[in-house]
Amino acid sequence: MSDHIVSSFDEELNEITDGLINMGALVLAALRSVEEILKNDDHNLAQKIIDNDLQINDLGQSIEIKAFNTLASRQPMAFDLRLVFSAVKMSLYLERCGDMCKGISKRILKGDLTEADSPNTIESLVTLTNRVYENLSLVLEDYAARTSEKSLEVWSSDNEIDSIYSDILMEILNNIKSKPEAIEALVPLFFIARYLERVGDQATNIAEVTHFIVTGEVLTDEKEIQIENETTF
């Protein structure tokens, strides 16, 4: 797409887009750290995720202010309007992803993963983390390139994440049944799985937003409702 006649308008839109890409990069880095702390029960890294979340929140706030000012001063239309309007939603979704990573870190700091004695479940959580990471990076790549093919892929494959999540829940439940004495160590795993599944949902939301920015079309959530019903635990 060609540049605006008013070049400062382009600069404002680029600041918003770059801000969101940076925010996404911070969330992806947090997810990579989650993978590490799941593997190594690294409490120092967990604390780092909690500390870094502030940076994600600050970036989100500055994007919202920029979008607000651009709406007021430029009154954008068509693609620009979709981009600015969606920036507010995207920053909220990414901020929530950051919060989920922070939540996982807090759960890990409160206990000791090794006490759960569930290497298979930990492995499944690592798989889920990787899957969520992959989806989030795909939609962010699409957003940066202003394309929507990868977003559509992610949007249609969210049920795979839900399925991994359901399997993990069953696994934890079975562990609780067979080792009731380990319930305190096992319950945090339940929450960690839930947080990761929620990050997956946010990636789907971002996929919807990216598709809307690029095409102007709204993806219906009939499919989502169906998936939700199938996997409600």
Partner: peptide
């Protein structure tokens, strides 16, 4: 027209990209 115009020229004009 203002949310998602079909024509590229319309899009360029309404978004202020038309010279």
């Amino acid at each position: 027209i203002f949310r998602n115009p079909i024509n590229k020229q319309t899009e360029a004009y309404v978004t202020g990209r038309y010279g």
